[in-house]
Computed example of a mutant assay.
Amino acid sequence: MGVPILLKQVLVTGATGMVGRSLVNALLKKGYCVRALVRKKVDEDILPARVEQVTGDITDAASVCSAMAGVCFVFHLAARLHVNNPSPDQKEQYQGVNVTGTLNVIEAASSARVDRIIFFSTISVYGAGKNNQAVDEGSETMPDTLYARTKLKAEQLIDQFCADRSGAPEVTILRLASVYGAGVKGNYRLMINAVQKGGFIFLGNGNNCRTLVHEEDVAAAAILAAEHPMARGKIYNVTDGTTHTVKAIVGAIARALERQPLELHVHETIIRAILNLLELSLFQGLPGVEKIGYMINKMNEHVAVRGEKIQQDLGFVPQWGLDRGMKQALKEGRSKP
């Protein structure tokens, strides 16, 4: 017989983020002993008292090693996350956390003879889609942001490490769709705020696609990837099983908030004219110009990704559709202090 789950020690990096907290709660519910590598200890409203908190930094190899003792699974979420139009001086931070930090994790896990690492990557490694065509795990990667490039570099580092080292831990890579939940941030938080205020401006007709996944579905997929023998060495996209237009997402947010926002549409020709204008040398160097152009491009791009592989291989069944997920996320988000 194998070791009972309640005796298995797992390590979670990035445990204090939205996805990390959902994963920690799911692991505790299943009976795992959970250890979290944190930069500073947090209160019980962030991580339950049953979680063993080990202070350290993902970029410091020694602190990663100290957290790894006796661990069977590592869930590596810690990352320098996506920000809109990062400045050039942030490149070193992305490299340090996303690439060097991942190397520290896999080297420490190898030395500690960890069974499996679940590495959380992103569908952003595929880049923006073309004509709403959905891509899968075999599609070409064309990352177009600093965040996506460093996450793909970390994936490649993992592949090379496992190829070069005998006895290296098994690794499963999860490429997450845009994750939403009670602590959602970024562009989706901007969308929610706009609907709450009574209006939303669509850049184009709103039919460009997005691929999403609820935080609790991510946690379920990650545990499956750790426990299932077929997940060894695989890459999986993790989605809610479908793609959604921006118009549908705004509609789900409005229904969750019980609002009927005013919808304004900016024609694509006007969008292109604005972008062309912003590219003129007359405007270069003005505060906010690059950020505006970047935001327009991101809001108007297609991101459509297929998630059938993890469903077929591991039996993963997403539980959170868009309407149910938004209602739960926004309800819990409003109840938080």
Rank of each mutant, 00 (worst) to 15 (best):
D89P: 15
A69D: 15
R189I: 03
D136Q: 15
Q53N: 02
N104I: 02
T141L: 11
I274Q: 02
N104L: 05
S124F: 04
A256F: 01
K331Y: 09
I270S: 14
R50Y: 11
L28A: 09
F120E: 07
T122P: 15
V114W: 03
A26E: 06
T13D: 09
M142L: 14
D217K: 00
V51C: 02
I310S: 11
Q196A: 06
A36P: 15
N193F: 11
T242N: 08
G101I: 02
F120M: 07
N25A: 11
E137V: 05
I201T: 15
I310T: 11
A128Y: 00
K336Y: 12
A26Y: 00
A148F: 00
L157G: 01
V105K: 00
I271A: 00
A109T: 03
Q319V: 03
N207T: 11
A252Y: 08
R334I: 01
K91C: 12
M230F: 10
V3M: 08
V125L: 10
C209Q: 14
T141E: 13
M230R: 10
A15I: 05
T245F: 14
G101D: 05
V74M: 05
A154D: 12
K197L: 10
P169T: 08
T239V: 04
G333P: 08
A231M: 01
R210D: 04
P318Q: 08
E290M: 07
R255K: 15
L37M: 11
G183N: 06
L77Y: 05
V24L: 04
D60K: 13
L27T: 01
G17N: 04
L286H: 13
V74N: 05
Y236G: 03
A69C: 14
G315I: 08
R35I: 14
H214C: 01
T102M: 13
A329E: 02
I158D: 03
H76D: 11
Y32P: 08
M299V: 08
G56N: 13
E140W: 08
V97T: 00
G293A: 06
P287I: 11
K291M: 10
V195M: 10
E332N: 12
N131S: 01
L224S: 07
A226D: 12
T269R: 12
E216I: 03
F202M: 05
K130I: 02
R210C: 04
T59A: 10
T269M: 06
V97R: 02
V12I: 06
Y147F: 02
Q284N: 09
I296L: 15
H267G: 10
